[in-house]
Design a protein around this nucleic acid. Sequence first.
DNA 1: ACAAAAGTGTTAGTGTTACACCCATGG
DNA 2: CCATGGGTGTAACACTAACACTTTTGT
Lengths: 233, 233
Amino acid sequence: MTEEERKRYFDIAMSSALVLFGFDGEDLKILIYRKKDEPYQNALSLPSKYVAPNETNEMIIREMLHERIGINPQNLYIEQLKAFVKVFRNPLGRVINVAYYALLKLTPEIEIQVAERGGVWVKYNDIPDLAFDHNEIVSYAKERIKRRVKRRPIGFNLLPKEFTIAQLQSLYEKALDRELDKRNFRKKIFNSNLIFETGNTTDPKEHRKIAKLYSFDAEKFERLSLKGYDFLF
Amino acid sequence: MTEEERKRYFDIAMSSALVLFGFDGEDLKILIYRKKDEPYQNALSLPSKYVAPNETNEMIIREMLHERIGINPQNLYIEQLKAFVKVFRNPLGRVINVAYYALLKLTPEIEIQVAERGGVWVKYNDIPDLAFDHNEIVSYAKERIKRRVKRRPIGFNLLPKEFTIAQLQSLYEKALDRELDKRNFRKKIFNSNLIFETGNTTDPKEHRKIAKLYSFDAEKFERLSLKGYDFLF
DNA sequence: ACAAAAGTGTTAGTGTTACACCCATGG
DNA sequence: CCATGGGTGTAACACTAACACTTTTGT
């Protein structure tokens, strides 16, 4: 490559947007912000950050989670969606966006931390107009999570360690965007043998009736995966 | 963004690699080349090309197909895989590769044209060591095509307009990398109602016994897709 | 005559769906 | 006493997987 060619080609910037799915036991939501700077000032947008040539994308995603969102990004499920490469995405020049999604269990504390930093959780099925091509990115993320939730037990990344079957079902219903039969759901989940009773129950103050709590048996899943087992919902 | 920041961030190049799947009625193959220039001189690699800031990736893929491979890229199924973004992919600087795959029906003429330009078809299950992270890209493409073939009738993009059930089955077996039962396969395919007899048969000179030829009913598929129909293999 | 590939049905088992009532508890 | 949400079984149906022989035709 000549010096001239180098100048011509090495003039692209990369950013990474994050579709952060959060589940609070009730609703599945996505995190967005209001942009403070140009371009698209004041528009809503996904959290997104430039990636310098010597930085890895995952590093930047984690940095963003930590600094701007106030979340500890350890043990978070993060996966690349794809690159969004339209030529005129950004008036500054060619900026391609390599988008990611991540899954987060929401707790009241996290919701407060996020709100303090200006973050807003919008419902999975109620996404407003966003800056750039971020609506396209969100659609793509929703498709991806629908597929993933059917074939891999990633839903457990959105739930606390111990959860009720009702919470799990609610999560699946939100992600797949359709209602599921209670009895059939329990059958399927228990047949998979991937969750076990913890012996604990919900706090009787919170609900009318106490419910058993379950956990995901990650170790068993590992063993089954090795044999080519396909968790299938 | 300050001028300094601009300099820092706008120093990335983008290339697009192509995993071109070809099916000749018998074998499913992938196209590779031997590199003539540095880096990785003389190594085998996927066809890949830089994308300038003002060029679209699909344009570049089509250009590559046309100029370097000698294929007319009209009506070709092309889809992005994802971005391969490791920091040290390329000694020239940060080059990210937004990889694509495409599907091609092979004919003897195309095979000759490709060979004249130095292209080599390697079998789906027999991929040699490739330059950069191209083996990783190929693995990713294989996973993608396995999934796609199960849910969308993209296999028909790899076959001539009229094909025998045996050819179709062979393609599915190669893509999914397992043997399928002949009778069950026919049942499934016919039950989908997405293919119809053309009334023609294979040339009796080519095989011991003549076979009926079928075509894919794209129009019917469109109608069904709109209703949320999921072609499922 | 035989090798090679096309074509054809049945059965057992598994998984999927649809569906309704009782129980415990808090208000 | 009633509203809320947890928990439970069964039957019809659809789909999947396993399996063997006959036909045609070229050599």
